[in-house]
Write a protein that binds this DNA or RNA. Structure first.
Length: 480
RNA sequence: UCCUCCUUAGCUCAGUUGGUUAGAGCAUCUGACUGUUAAUCAGAGGGUCGUCUGUUCAAAUCAGACAGGGGGAGCCA
């Protein structure tokens, strides 16, 4: 009966003593032939299991190696040593799974994140990744809680999609046709998808937004939270080929409502993690602090992780228009001294990473919501402002991460929308179903997309997006 | 995809102007110790120097190509 076991988190947090308990978990270290640091993933802390000399079989002791899985039964007692309040004095230890210490790659020492990424199937058993993925779990749970409390409907949008006109990025093809060159072709040499599984060309989704808008035109408030795929050849610490995206879509909402929602949302999620994952976050904060010490003084972050998260929860995001941002950048000493690689000369340019970082990290020193971008650099579905030049778009920029949210009020006016699609060469016939929302009972609405992994990066203080998703997919890599 | 740096033991790294048998710490193994906190102490084993090609009497060291990784950029979330 495995359910009789006590989870280490519960055992440690109760601080109750003098009762018998059964624990199971994986050995982190075995010191002095006597002290087992046992972890079962329920918490970052290990339980000290004491194997008293003479009480246990020598042959069993030999098999208690780093990585081995064991079951221990014994009395929970106040710890005789320092460093923990309670410990388990084992009366019996059973090896559930041996681990050959000569071959097990994790050692009781510091490993580089790059090395651990190569053994992503085992890195869950480290302090850092244990903390990261417990925080990730909490954030995911908090997202559902936030929207559920506000009456949003969780909409499952398709993962296989027929539309390839969204312009969000390169897509992965989905097909059952043979790849050996024998697939049927049209007269012009292109592949004929008539006999493909779906009878047409299909791809993995790059965004659930358009489908989300359809549902918002019935349920008022919806959100999606699911995997998203981009076949872009992006080799950065901020991009994945497979990532999870949250996309709320709200009827009867304008850009300001949208900004309010996004800001409330981010603060709620972070506050939830601060409340429920204190221990893990403090561990990650300490890890980050040690890493920062390696850097030269001028490159270090001004705030520690906990301080940063508290700050974000308790302060308003700075809201500035694109036009104001350009003025700030143009007039900045940084620009005048030509310290930007791309100098800011005038209105209409797309902001470079260095410009966004300057605004967030140097000028405002807090999250920034940039609004009303030139229409030329934004997507077709964004609502055109009365000035004829800008659209009701908003991007939220976070310190250290850059763009974390991209959203807009949507263009609900059919004539304006189709006109813009024409200008941007987006085939209207393929998106006829989408245009139906504008034909039958259109209303002002808005929404945004938030990259889940970027949020996890921000909250955990990790710096590479490949370290906050269990099994990352990126160019030239799809292991596990 | 572009720029740049890196690749030496299981891990993290040294390795002199190219020169004989390539080193350290940690891990592992053997033994000791038995209230330890990444335990400690003693000893041992462990390497096709990323791959290929070239230069040279001689290459871990120099050059080129390729592969993988880091940092930055673009695309974006």
């Amino acid at each position: 009966m495995f359910n009789k076991r006590t989870k280490i988190k519960a055992l440690l947090s109760s601080e109750q003593t003098d009762y018998e308990a059964t624990v199971m978990g994986w050995v982190r270290t075995f010191r002095n032939n006597q002290f087992i640091a046992l972890n079962d993933g329920s918490t970052n802390s290990n339980l000290q299991v004491v194997a008293t000399l003479g009480d246990l079989d020598e042959a069993i002791l030999k098999r208690i190696t780093t990585g081995a899985c064991i079951k221990a039964v014994g009395q929970v007692i106040p710890s005789l040593g320092k460093g923990q309040k309670v410990e388990l004095k084992a009366s019996s230890i059973e090896i559930l799974g041996d681990s050959d210490a000569e071959k097990f790659p994790l050692q009781p020492k510091k490993h580089s994140l790059e090395f651990l990424r190569e053994i992503a199937h085992l890195r869950f058993r480290t302090n850092t990744f244990g903390a990261v993925f417990r925080v990730r779990h909490s954030l995911a749970f908090a997202i559902h809680e936030f929207f559920n409390k506000r009456g949003f409907l969780y909409l499952h949008t398709p993962i296989i999609t027929a539309s390839d006109a969204e312009g969000a990025g390169e897509m992965f093809k989905v097909t059952t046709l043979p790849l050996d060159g024998t697939a049927p072709k049209n007269d012009n040499g292109s592949i004929n998808f008539k006999d493909d599984f779906f009878g047409r060309s299909t791809n993995l989704t790059v965004s659930g937004q358009l489908e989300g808008e359809l549902a918002a035109m019935a349920f008022s408030d919806i959100y999606t939270f699911g995997p998203t795929f981009r076949a872009e050849n992006s080799n950065t610490a901020r991009h994945l080929a497979e990532f999870w995206m949250i996309e709320p879509e709200v009827a009867f909402a304008d850009l300001e409502d949208n900004m309010d929602l996004a800001e409330d949302f981010i603060k709620y999620i972070i506050a939830y993690a601060l409340e429920h994952n204190r221990e893990d976050l403090e561990f990650l904060a300490q890890r980050l602090e040690e890493e920062e010490k390696q850097k030269p003084q001028n490159e270090r972050a001004e705030m520690g992780l906990m301080e940063k998260l508290d700050f974000v929860v308790n302060n308003n995001f700075e809201r500035v228009t694109y036009t104001e941002a350009i003025e700030i950048l143009k007039e900045s000493n940084h620009n005048k001294k030509k310290k930007f690689q791309y100098l800011v000369e005038g209105w209409g340019i797309d902001l470079q990473s260095e410009h966004e970082r300057y605004l967030v990290e140097k000028h405002f020193k807090k999250p920034v919501i940039l609004t009303n971008y030139p229409k030329e650099i934004k997507a077709f579905y964004m609502r055109q402002n009365d000035d004829g030049k800008t659209v009701a778009a908003m991007d939220i920029l976070a310190p250290g991460i850059g763009e974390i949210v991209g959203g807009s009020q949507r263009e609900e006016r059919l004539d304006k929308l189709t006109q813009r699609m024409e200008e941007m060469h987006i085939p209207a016939e393929e998106l006829d179903w989408y245009l139906d929302t504008r034909r039958f009972g259109a209303c002002p609405h808005a929404g945004f997309g938030l990259g889940f992994e970027r949020l996890v990066l921000f909250v955990t203080g990790m710096t590479n997006i490949r370290d906050v998703i269990p099994f990352p997919r990126f160019p030239k890599s799809a292991s596990f």
